[in-house]
């Protein structure tokens, strides 16, 4: 046994094997983040007549561990736009600091030239694209909601590669698979956002959050929801998914202990 002080308190090599130090990079090129650490799951958004709703749950996972259960993933920018973050939480906090400094700079000379949600989305997409081009990505998929220069409701997405797209309803991560089909059924393209009321949009998102909580193992029943209208932003950050029914779980077959 090794009695030298540097080994004190360390797992014994003869029992546990030598410390696997392969993850510590000693040579080669500088490596950046190649995978996210603490992550948030889906972000959901829907446009309605006169505004946009955005929702996320309040969970930050560390792999499969539900690590932080009170993390707010909706960030307000300048009282007119909201950014919803999925993906790495530390990168979210970095972007949040970035937005803070832009907000201060933009408001420093207030001449009615505030950046709107569309400008903000363009900027953030550029930040993502620049970082991916440096092979040092910000590991996020975000939704930006608010209004464009013509005061029309605006909802658009940007991800770690700098890819952008816009649609009357959007969802990132698992939501893209589970929530978007629900939203497309509720609000088909032919309907147009003029026929969607604020209440209907909020209800739809709550329904989607519930479905996600049922099926996405990295989700939580505590969520945040932001309603952005011309009157301002109504942000609620300590909401609880209501009307859950797990009765359907009993009928599920095909995995776990019930394989038939």
């Amino acid at each position: 046994m090794n009695h030298f002080p540097e080994a004190w308190g360390r797992p014994r090599d003869d029992v546990y094997g030598a410390y696997n130090s392969t993850y510590l990079q000693t040579s080669g090129p500088k490596a950046h983040t190649t995978s996210p650490a603490v992550t948030g799951t889906s972000v959901l958004g829907v446009k309605f007549k006169g505004g946009v709703v955005l929702a996320t749950d309040n969970l930050a996972s560390y792999g499969s561990l539900a690590r932080f259960t009170d993390v707010k993933r909706l960030r307000v920018f300048g009282g007119k736009a909201v950014v919803g973050f999925g993906g790495d939480v530390s990168d979210m906090q970095y972007i949040d600091r970035l937005l803070e400094s832009i907000d201060i700079r933009e408001n420093y000379s207030s001449h009615g030239n505030m950046l709107n949600a569309k400008n903000l989305h363009t900027y953030l997409a550029k930040v993502f694209y620049k970082r991916r081009s440096e092979f040092n990505p910000l590991w996020n998929h975000i939704l930006v909601a608010g209004f464009d220069a013509d005061d029309q409701p605006f909802l658009s997405s940007a991800d770690l590669l700098g890819t952008t797209f816009s649609s009357p309803h959007l969802a990132t991560g698992f939501g893209a698979h589970l929530a978007v089909p629900i939203l497309r059924r509720k609000f088909p393209d032919e309907r147009g956002i003029e026929t969607i009321s604020r209440e209907e949009a909020i209800e739809a998102l709550k329904e989607c959050l519930k479905v996600l909580f049922y099926r996405d193992a990295r989700s939580l029943d505590k969520y945040s929801i932001a309603v952005i209208t011309q009157e301002g932003i109504d942000l609620r950050e300590d909401e609880q998914i209501e009307g859950q029914s797990w009765a359907f779980a009993e009928t599920i077959r095909g995995y776990g202990s019930q394989t038939s």
Partner: peptide
């Protein structure tokens, strides 16, 4: 125009 998608505010560029 490239970074924000908006025309630069006049007071900004004059400054």
């Amino acid at each position: 125009k490239m970074t924000y998608g908006r025309p630069i505010p006049l007071d900004r560029i004059v400054t």
